Simulated scan of single mutants.
Amino acid sequence: MTRFKLTAGILALMAVTGCSSVATHKNEKFYQNQEKISEYTQKGMDYYWHGGDLKKAEKEFFKGITLKGKYDVVENYFVEASNLNPSRLDLRFGIASSQILQGKTDEALDTYREIIKIYPDSFEANMLLAGYDYALGNMDEYNEIMNKMKSIYPEKTRNFEQRILRTEDFKKTQFNTYPFEMPGDNQAIVVLGYALGKDGVMQPTLIGRLEQALAMAKKNPNASIIVTGGVPQGGVTEAYLMKNWLVEKGINPNRIYIEDQAKDTVGNALYSVNILKNIGAKNVNLITSASHMRRALAVLQEMALTEGLQLSSLSNLVYLDYPSLQEAYSITPKENLVIYRDMMRAAGFWAYPGIQR
């Protein structure tokens, strides 16, 4: 009898120990996967910003995959991360954003549809799918999604609908090519940067924008000036060189605010809006290239609304980078898609949730 009890006790102890080992193994596996997911997403975003050696990436990690560009690398890193934890919807959003960047719109829409199958009421997934449907002319699915979401999130969905209508208005923007007197008080001129050469030298496009900024600043001597652009080359940022150029041309440095954190158009808008709020500017003139203006205006307006800034007026002055104004008014399908992509980012829909807006 005693022998039986002893044996049963040992068996019970073995069973408990075995369960504990299984649980420990599962926990270790979970944390290992989390570390790998973090590694893959970080590598993906490093390629997003800086690119890299595609052949090296194929050889060392993506064996058997022919990579077509840096955004293809980003997509595949997020695919690998998602495979480790398919329930992580943020990783699937990252896959879709990478597909959009490559122009793989059909695949991106399918990725959003997969997210919606997992979480049918996801406001973010439904609105992103609807927004791209609208941009691509898929109106049946767009209307279906909007009707469904109005019954679940009526106010938020109507707000999104208003953002689309405003974006359509910005697509009809008439470009100003000569400086003019801005309306009202509390004026600010926002000048968007342009990528520097690798040696930190301003390129002709940026100088063209600055020449327009100089003319506008002289026409409106009470307007503050925000120069925005933060990608450094040769140890300097776009904004730093932009301010120096304007000061050398006679503009009072006290009028100029440097924004040197932004890496893209959405960043330009986000950080500039924060400065506009701090200085109390309500009447804003935006300066960039004609090819960039429609997107920049839509993004700045939506970012202002997202961040709680009500603008009294938002005007434009373009550096004409087309042979003629007539050509500048033509919107390609690619530009249309990018306008909506960045508008939705400005509206609060992160491209890479938790990593990059």
Rank of each mutant, 00 (worst) to 15 (best):
A8R: 07
I10C: 03
L11S: 12
A12D: 00
T17A: 14
S20W: 12
S20V: 03
K26P: 00
E39A: 14
T41L: 01
Y48A: 00
G51L: 06
D53W: 04
K59F: 12
I65V: 12
I65S: 00
L67N: 06
K70I: 06
Y71L: 04
V73G: 01
Y77T: 01
A81F: 10
S82P: 00
L84K: 10
P86I: 05
P86K: 11
G94P: 04
G94C: 05
A96G: 05
S97I: 00
A108M: 06
T111L: 01
I116C: 07
Y119E: 15
P120R: 04
A125E: 02
M127D: 04
L129F: 09
A130C: 10
G131Y: 06
D133S: 15
Y134D: 01
L136E: 15
M139Y: 15
Y142A: 10
I145S: 10
I145H: 05
K150A: 13
S151M: 13
S151I: 07
I152A: 03
E155L: 13
K156Y: 00
F160E: 07
R163T: 15
L165T: 10
R166N: 12
T167Y: 03
T173R: 12
Q174Y: 09
F175C: 09
T177F: 04
T177L: 14
Y178V: 14
F180G: 09
F180P: 08
A188R: 08
A188W: 11
G193S: 13
G200K: 00
G200L: 00
V201N: 05
Q203F: 08
P204D: 12
T205R: 04
L210C: 07
A215T: 08
A215D: 13
I225F: 04
I226N: 12
T228C: 14
G229F: 01
G230I: 09
P232R: 01
G234E: 03
G234V: 09
Y240R: 10
L241K: 15
K243V: 05
N244G: 11
I251S: 02
I251Q: 09
N252H: 10
P253M: 07
R255C: 03
D260T: 08
Q261K: 14
N268S: 03
L270E: 14
I279S: 04
A281D: 11
N283R: 05
I287T: 05
L297Y: 08
A298I: 01
A298G: 02
M303W: 06
L305N: 13
G308A: 09
L309G: 11
S313L: 02
N316P: 02
N316Q: 01
V318F: 02
D321K: 01
P323E: 04
L325W: 05
Q326K: 15
Q326P: 01
A328C: 05
P333T: 13
E335Y: 13
V338E: 15
M344S: 04
A347M: 12
G348P: 02
F349P: 03
Y352M: 04
G354Y: 07
